[in-house]
Amino acid sequence: MRLVTYRPPGDADPRVGALDGERVVDLPGFTSMLDLLERGAAGLDDARTLASVAATAHPLADVTLLAPLPRPRTMRDFMLVEEHVRNSFGDVPAEWFRIPVHWKCNPDTVIGPDTVAPWPYYTDKLDYELEVAAVIGAPLYRASPAEAAAAIAGYTIFNDWSARDIQFREMSVGIGPAFGKDFATSLGPCLTTADAFDTTAARMRARINGETWSEGSIGAMRFSFPDVIATLSEYQPLHPGDVLGGGTTGRGCGLELDRWIRPGDVVELEVDGIGVLRNTVGQPDPPGDRTVDLREPSTRGEQVEDA
């Protein structure tokens, strides 16, 4: 089952639905995707029952898909694919093999499908990241890997938009990323339930203006999602609506390829079993007058030219 948050035609209030081919079946009784997830397995069972009845349905072309979780409870993003680490940083730190390293994302800057991705004024190197995220559907604390696996409600595509120049400036201080990441994360187009998605076999690809730049899978993760979730839960309670990105697949971003997206580009991330998450890259924000100017001194007064 592929669950969505959507706006029906002429209705400003988001609703929960299920994708059925080229239509969206409404799932009445849920106030939000978070409400559905907080009901646990019973909520998913009710959603399946409602989807099978299909009392109200809309053509997909007539609705607006939002991020499946427009405001996750929390978001964490891991770096679990060795090829991505090696391509991005050269040597792989020894601790990477021992610890599921991650950073905490900003759940207040999530954007959905077909939304314009912001281009912060302080970056000349905006980048995409081709990822899959697991979404928690049950409370967890000190869970075993088996319990963690059972608590995954489903999976969605995760695009960790990255301002590479300021990201590496931040990380040179030994902290971050923050300004380099927290301005936007795309989720969508749906939440595919765990029983309908194969994490070991699903192929992934990124297209820029229709040209394939990246291809891969998440089958080569150093730590599995259940292992990561169990490790997190040892000292941190986890809750329905928590989102955990698995990290970029190998060669899954422009940084690894030394190819850079431009204003106006259309970025499409596709994952078998989930769908296509599409965003258009916005125009760079004007620098303006700021007390603290985050641009590098060498780029102040310059702007990224349109493609």
Rank of each mutant, 00 (worst) to 15 (best):
A202W: 12
D182C: 03
E83G: 12
D198W: 04
G241M: 10
R207A: 14
C105N: 06
G176T: 02
R15P: 00
D195H: 09
P113C: 01
S233C: 04
L255R: 08
M1E: 03
A94C: 00
T291D: 06
T156N: 02
G245S: 11
T231C: 03
E170G: 06
G43N: 13
V267R: 06
R262P: 03
D182V: 04
F30P: 00
R23A: 14
D272G: 13
T5E: 06
A202T: 14
L277M: 09
F223T: 02
P113T: 02
Q303G: 03
D306T: 10
Y155S: 03
T156R: 02
N106Y: 04
A138N: 01
D285Q: 13
V116M: 13
A94D: 15
H239N: 03
I111N: 07
H239I: 00
R39F: 06
P113N: 01
A54F: 10
G21Y: 09
D195N: 04
A61E: 15
P100D: 13
T192Y: 05
N159F: 01
A178L: 12
V281Q: 09
P240R: 10
A12V: 07
T31W: 03
D272R: 11
D124E: 13
S32I: 10
M75V: 15
R295Y: 02
A41G: 08
F158R: 05
W103C: 03
D293E: 05
T115P: 00
A51P: 02
G288Y: 12
P177M: 07
G275S: 11
F197H: 05
V63A: 04
R222Y: 04
F223Q: 08
P177S: 07
R142V: 09
R262G: 09
R205S: 15
N209G: 13
G254V: 09
A202F: 04
V267Y: 07
V243Y: 07
G252K: 06
H239Q: 08
P237I: 05
V110S: 03
K104V: 07
T156Q: 05
A134I: 05
L44G: 01
P72G: 10
V81A: 07
R15F: 04
N106K: 01
D124L: 12
A202R: 12
T192S: 09
I157W: 11
D258S: 10
P93H: 13
F30A: 12
D285Y: 02
E83S: 14
V135I: 15
F97C: 00
V92C: 08
R86A: 15
Q167A: 06
R142G: 14
D127M: 05
L244P: 06
T291Y: 11
E147W: 03
P237W: 01
L187F: 13
A41I: 13
R73E: 10
D13T: 09
V4Q: 02
R203H: 10
M33R: 06
K125Y: 08
D289S: 12
I152G: 05
D26W: 13
P100E: 15
E215M: 11
A42R: 15
V101Y: 14
L191D: 09
Y155G: 05
F89E: 14
A148F: 07
C190S: 15
N159M: 08
V63I: 07
D198R: 06
F30M: 10
R164V: 08
V63L: 06
D114N: 12
L130K: 01
H84I: 02
V271H: 09
G112N: 11
E95I: 15
F158K: 05
D306S: 09
V4H: 03
S186M: 08
M221F: 02
G10C: 11
G137E: 11
V228I: 15
S172M: 01
G90Q: 14
